[in-house]
């Protein structure tokens, strides 16, 4: 039996008459997390984790009907059991567990296994069918210990200070920059933010995530001495007029893609820090294993290699063409608002 199937508007549960992360307006959308490629405008009802209500609202506005469900609590939608379980990707990100007639499916959304103080840690959920992302689904992607990466970032910041340069650190405005913030050492110097980052950081603080103090760079005098500061900005700000005010500066991007030299060089950045909010290859395999699933649907990313690998391990794996983009390696800066 197929509890979820792919339609032109996304993953659909026919029995329960709801969608998971649809990409078109539907009546009822269960949303794994608030990144743009997982949220459609104009749905009648949204359901997301209680932890994630704030971030989802910040994207959809005050008029959207957003329901919050605590992790692990089970509700029934037209007779289908639905519960949400932490995915560890960004604040409020969840996996959606769907159960009907003894059949259990889990949609992972985006997820990671590495510790992250800004979100509840990933939790493996037993199921028959697991729908997993595959953004970094190749064995070349093995994250270095992430606390080590954060140490390197702090060291880079100190080094730039000594060279009299501002440190411009790019990361996605929702999720990555808050995780960076939690790992930065505020004793080194002032932490400044781009408008888009400041907005999302305020949402995190409102949700009770403890983060070091930040100042919106736009609120400061342009003649400020920036050389001791670290400025957090979305990748789309790179090369923009906005960055010129900082004078002598070093640039870096925190993303899983930065593990590969070519991806960093293409952007002409000074540094690339491999800090990712997605599972790496060993993490992905461990997650699949922990679910005990016999059937695995693989979405956005390196679907081909992951499907083949899982098939060779004896699993019933196939690729599902969704419109999720995962951590897209480009400058569209999906969750960036205009600079303010």
């Amino acid at each position: 039996m197929t509890l979820l199937r792919l339609t032109d508007r996304g993953l659909y549960c026919e029995v329960g008459n709801f969608f998971v992360d649809p990409w078109g307006a539907v009546d009822r959308a269960v949303v794994t997390h608030a990144h743009g490629d997982h949220v459609a405008w104009g749905c009648r009802d949204y359901l997301t984790s209680a932890e994630g209500v704030g971030v989802l609202r910040s994207r959809l506005g005050p008029d959207a009907r957003v329901g919050g469900l605590p992790f692990g609590e089970r509700i029934s939608i037209n007779g289908v059991g639905v519960s949400l379980h932490p995915a560890g990707h960004i604040l409020g990100s969840s996996q959606v567990r769907v159960e009907h007639g003894g059949e259990v499916w889990v949609v992972s959304g985006d997820y990671k296994m590495d510790p992250d103080p800004t979100t509840t840690a990933f939790e493996a959920v037993r199921c028959h069918t697991f729908i997993t992302e595959s953004t970094f689904g190749l064995p070349i992607y093995r994250w270095p210990p992430q606390h080590q990466v954060l140490r390197d970032i702090n060291a880079w910041w100190r080094g730039n200070q000594e060279a009299g340069k501002a440190s411009l650190l790019y990361g996605y405005a929702l999720g990555k920059t808050q995780r960076l913030l939690a790992g930065l050492d505020p004793a080194i110097g002032p932490i400044l933010t781009h408008g888009a980052v400041e907005r999302m950081t305020a949402v995190y603080r409102a949700a009770g995530v403890p983060l070091p103090p930040t100042t919106h760079a736009g609120s400061l005098d342009r003649r400020t001495d920036w050389s001791r500061a670290l400025i957090l900005a979305p990748p789309s700000a790179d090369g923009s007029v906005w960055t010129r005010r900082f004078g002598a500066r070093a640039t870096a991007f925190a993303s899983g893609w930065m593990l590969v030299r070519g991806a960093r060089r293409r952007r002409s950045l000074d540094r690339g820090f491999p800090l990712s909010d997605h599972v790496d290859w060993p993490g992905l395999l461990a997650a699949v294993d922990a679910t005990g699933a016999e059937r695995v649907w693989v979405t956005h990313g390196f679907t081909g290699p992951v499907v083949r690998w899982l098939q060779e391990q004896g699993l019933d794996a196939s690729a599902v063409e969704t419109r999720f983009e995962g951590d897209v390696d480009d400058d569209t800066g999906q969750e960036d608002g205009p600079e303010q």
Binding site: L138, P139, I140, V260, G262, F302, G304, P305, R308, W309
Partner: peptide
């Protein structure tokens, strides 16, 4: 899988 990795890198 080596070849897939090589193509990506």
């Amino acid at each position: 899988l080596f070849d897939e990795s090589h193509a990506a890198v």
